[in-house]
């Protein structure tokens, strides 16, 4: 992969069998992302945004073409290697937060570090630091059911960034949040992008998210319709 490139897709195609038919979710997508980008995939429902995020997150594999993430070709990874890639280098933020309900805020954020086998003292420091980034240190002992939607999403952000991954993939992160909470979490992610140099790749319809993007890629019917600087392009980290 070229120097400084984190992601590169070449003619990336994903076809889903649907009954007797095939649905092409991604059609020869060619994209590259450099380290530290704050980019978004926009487009209508069914345009392939989530499919692309899933493939880049090694949760799915292309039908044809190639997706290279951090030097690993997704299409050739075994389940175990793909899990390792996610574990070490990729953080996820979901529309519905996907927090583990029986865990406390602290335990949710700690989870990826447990998988990494980090030592307890270092783990504790990292979790507290992550909670500090998202201003939730005082809710460490709460359970997800005791938090508001905005707080849940901030926990999800802390969980995604606690291991300081190279890449965070956020699928509609503000879809379930009100304007004020959306604003807060976007600022939080922008701050983390600036402070830690973490690459953020969003899928979104939300104008509030789009307004923070430094690169905006429009997908229509699985194809890249437009790849342009975002509204926040002038704000370099």
């Amino acid at each position: 992969m070229e120097n400084g490139m984190l992601i590169k897709t070449t003619d990336l195609t994903k076809v889903y069998p649907m009954g007797g038919q095939s649905i092409t979710a991604l059609d020869k997508v060619n994209l590259s992302f450099a380290k530290g980008e704050f980019a978004g995939l926009v487009g209508p429902s069914g345009s392939g945004k989530t499919t692309l995020l899933n493939i880049l997150g090694s949760l799915d594999v292309p039908t044809r073409g190639s997706a290279e993430v951090l030097g690993e070709k997704i299409e050739t990874l075994t389940h175990r290697k793909a899990a390792e890639l996610r574990n070490h280098h990729i953080g996820f933020i979901f529309q519905t937060f996907n927090l583990l309900p029986v865990y406390t805020v602290y335990e949710n954020v700690e989870f990826p570090l447990l998988l990494l086998g980090m030592a307890p003292a270092a783990r504790r420091r990292a979790v507290l630091a992550a909670l500090e980034w998202v201003h939730l240190s005082d809710r460490a002992r709460s359970r997800p059911a005791q938090l508001s939607g905005g707080q849940c999403q901030r926990v999800a952000i802390a969980r995604a960034v606690v291991k300081k991954p190279d890449l965070v993939l956020a699928d509609e992160p503000t879809a379930n949040l009100d304007a004020e909470n959306s604003h807060h979490i976007l600022h939080t992610m922008a701050d983390i992008n600036r402070d830690l140099g973490t690459t953020f790749l969003f899928s979104t319809h939300d104008d509030k998210v789009i307004s923070h993007l430094r690169r905006k890629i429009t997908l229509i019917d699985g194809r890249v319709a437009k790849d342009e600087p975002g509204p926040a392009a002038e704000k370099r980290p």
């Binding site: 175990r80 574990n87 070490h88 996820f92 996907n98 583990l100 998988l115 969980r159």
Partner: peptide, 15 residues
């Protein structure tokens, strides 16, 4: 199942 998917996304293998 959603929790399982989340765990997998965080790097938990199927095994």
């Amino acid at each position: 199942r959603k929790e399982i998917g989340t765990m997998m996304a965080m790097g938990v293998t199927r095994g």
